[in-house]
Simulated scan of single mutants.
Amino acid sequence: MTFEKSNESPHHFFAQLAGNWRGTSKLWLEPDTLAGETPIVGTIQLILEGRFALFLYQSSIEGEAQHGMFTFGYNTLLDRYETSWVDSFSQQHRHHVLHRQRDRERLLGPRLLP
Rank of each mutant, 00 (worst) to 15 (best):
H12F: 14
G50R: 01
F3A: 05
H11G: 04
A18Q: 04
G36N: 05
G50S: 08
S90C: 00
R51Q: 12
E49S: 06
Q16S: 07
L34R: 08
E8K: 09
S90L: 09
F13C: 10
V86C: 06
I40D: 05
I44E: 00
V97P: 02
I40M: 02
M69Q: 02
L98R: 04
L29N: 13
E8V: 04
L56G: 13
F70A: 11
T33P: 03
Q91A: 10
H93E: 00
R100A: 05
R51F: 06
I47Q: 01
P31K: 07
I47S: 05
Q66H: 10
T38H: 02
Q45M: 06
H96G: 09
Y81C: 03
Q92T: 06
G19L: 04
R94P: 03
I61K: 00
S9G: 06
A18D: 00
H67R: 14
F55Q: 05
Y57C: 08
Q58R: 09
Q92K: 14
T24L: 06
R94V: 07
G73W: 00
G50Q: 02
W21D: 04
G63T: 11
H96F: 15
Y57S: 04
H96M: 13
H11S: 14
F14T: 05
A65E: 15
P31R: 06
W28N: 10
Q16M: 03
A65V: 09
T33R: 15
S59D: 02
T43N: 15
L27F: 12
A53D: 03
F13H: 02
F13I: 14
L56K: 11
P10H: 03
K26L: 12
L78N: 09
H12A: 11
G23A: 04
G36L: 09
E30G: 09
V97M: 05
